[in-house]
C-alpha cells in the first residue's frame, strides 16, 4: 500500500514536472550547444532579457518599498479607522484574483492612448501603454500582494511592544524602524523580494497585453518565448525558456534557504 502511494507520487512528479523540464532542456540543445547559444545571442533575445532584467529591478525596488510601508500601515497605523483597515486589507488580495490578462487590460483601459489619463500623459510626452512604464505598472499590480502578505503576519506576531519600548527609551521612528522592527522582519522581506523577483521575471499575461510585444522595444523574455512558439521556432523558444527556468530554480533554492534561515530566527 505504502509503496503504491509513493510510486504514484513519484509518477505524478515525473510526468508533471520532471519530464517536461527534461524535455525542454534537451529541446533547447537539440541543435547542439551552438543552437542554444545562437538562440540566446539573437539581438531580440538579448534585448528581451535586458528588458526583463530592467522590469525585475524596478518592480522589486518599488514593490519592496511600498509593500513594507503598506504592511506597516495596515498593521500598526492607528490613524486609519478599523473598518477602513479591514477594507484595505481585503483589497490587497485582489490582484491574486485578477487574471493577469485582465490586469493588463485594466491598465490599457485606464492609461491607454484612447483614455483621458493616457491622453494627458501623452500630451506631456510620456508614453505609458506599449512602453516601459506600462510594463512596470502591470507587473507592480500583479506582484503587489506578495510583499505585503509576507511582512504583515510577522509584524502582527512581533506585536508593537518592542517598538513602544524603543519610543519610551527616546528612539525616533526612523531609529525604531531600523534598530527594532527591521531585524525582526528582514527575513520576511527577503522572502517577499524573492517572490517578487520570481513573479516579475515570469510575468507574461499582463505584460503581453500592456507592452504590445514590440520586438526590440517592449519585448520581454516571456513574451519572446510566446512569439517564438507562434513562429514555430521551438528551439529558440526553448533556449530562452531554459534561461528563465534556470533563474526560477535558482530562486526556488534561495527561497528554501531563506525559509530555513527564517525558521532559525
Amino acid at each position: 500500500m505504502r509503496r503504491l502511494w509513493i510510486g504514484i507520487t513519484y509518477l505524478v512528479f515525473f510526468l508533471l514536472i520532471i519530464a517536461p523540464l527534461g524535455k525542454m532542456t534537451t529541446g533547447a540543445f537539440s541543435q547542439g550547444f551552438d543552437g542554444f547559444w545562437a538562440a540566446l545571442t539573437r539581438p531580440e533575445a538579448q534585448h528581451a532579457l535586458l528588458m526583463t532584467g530592467l522590469v525585475v529591478v524596478v518592480v522589486t525596488l518599488l514593490n519592496t518599498l511600498f509593500g513594507v510601508m503598506m504592511a506597516l500601515y495596515l498593521v500598526r497605523a492607528n490613524w486609519i479607522n478599523r473598518r477602513l483597515k479591514g477594507l484595505l486589507n481585503s483589497i490587497v488580495d485582489l490582484p491574486y484574483a485578477v487574471s493577469p490578462v485582465i490586469g493588463g487590460l485594466m491598465i490599457v483601459l485606464l492609461l491607454g492612448p484612447d483614455s483621458a489619463l493616457g491622453a494627458i500623459f501623452e500630451g506631456i510626452g510620456l508614453k505609458i501603454v506599449y512602453a516601459f512604464p506600462g510594463m512596470v505598472i502591470a507587473t507592480l499590480f500583479v506582484t503587489f500582494p506578495l510583499m505585503v502578505r509576507e511582512v504583515m503576519p510577522v509584524l502582527q506576531e512581533i506585536g508593537s511592544q518592542q517598538e513602544e519600548a524603543a519610543s519610551t527609551l527616546g528612539a525616533r521612528a526612523w531609529t525604531t524602524f531600523w534598530r527594532v522592527t527591521w531585524p525582526s522582519i528582514r527575513w520576511a522581506v527577503m522572502y517577499g523580494v524573492i517572490l517578487t523577483v520570481a513573479r516579475s521575471l515570469g510575468e507574461f499575461g499582463a505584460v503581453l497585453v500592456v507592452s504590445g510585444n514590440i520586438m526590440n522595444k517592449t519585448q520581454t523574455a516571456t513574451t519572446l518565448v510566446y512569439q517564438d512558439v507562434e513562429n514555430f521556432n521551438v528551439t529558440a523558444a526553448g533556449g530562452v525558456a531554459l534561461v528563465l527556468a534556470a533563474f526560477s530554480i535558482g530562486l526556488l533554492l534561495l527561497m528554501e534557504w531563506t525559509k530555513r534561515r527564517k525558521g532559525v530566527h
Binding site: 511592544q161 519600548a165 524603543a166 527609551l169 528612539a171 531585524p183
Partner: peptide, 26 residues
Amino acid sequence: IGFVFQNYALFKHMTAYENIAFGLKV
C-alpha cells in the same frame, strides 16, 4: 519616562547589554 512592559518587550535580537544600552545609544 521609563516603561516596563508586561511581557518586558525586550529587543529579542539584542543581548542583555545591548538592550540596556539602547536608550543611551539613542
